[in-house]
Computed example of a mutant assay.
Amino acid sequence: MHNRLQLSATVEREADLRYTPAGIPVLEMWLRHQSRQPQAGIERDVSCEIQAVLIGDGAPRWAGKLTGQCIAVSGFIAQRSLRNPRLVLHIEHVELIKG
């Protein structure tokens, strides 16, 4: 089974950098995507907002630098927690899109 997501989006907002009890850095953010996608032979306007999280060494490196930026990300989706089924994108790679 595969669980991979690639997305280009604008970072709408970032939460403050935080650390898990084990000392692992975590950066939460909300991404806004807009595009035109083919579906059933027609073009469809697509817009969505998705919550994302960057965990590990990349979190402090990107913290405070992404809001308002266009980025390309890749990672996987998972529910937020055992009790919260809302999907969150777990970012494994971030790249700024030069515009």
Rank of each mutant, 00 (worst) to 15 (best):
G56C: 05
P25S: 02
A52H: 07
V11S: 04
N3C: 02
A59Y: 11
I50Q: 14
R86W: 07
D57R: 13
I55P: 10
I42S: 11
G56E: 12
Q79T: 00
G56H: 03
P21Q: 07
R80V: 00
I91R: 03
L5S: 00
V73W: 05
I42K: 12
G23E: 05
V26A: 03
Q69M: 09
L54T: 05
D16A: 14
C48N: 13
L31A: 02
S8Q: 12
A72Y: 02
K98M: 09
L54D: 02
I71H: 06
C70T: 15
P21L: 07
G64F: 03
R44L: 13
R80K: 13
H2Y: 08
N3L: 02
I91S: 07
D57M: 05
E28Q: 11
E12Q: 11
A78H: 14
S74D: 14
D45L: 13
G68C: 11
F76L: 09
P25T: 06
Q51R: 15
P25C: 01
I24V: 15
L17G: 02
D16Y: 00
L7T: 01
A78S: 15
S35H: 03
V73P: 01
Q51T: 02
L31T: 06
Q39H: 15
E92R: 15
D16S: 10
L7G: 00
G75A: 05
L17T: 03
L17Y: 00
A15F: 15
R32Q: 12
G99D: 10
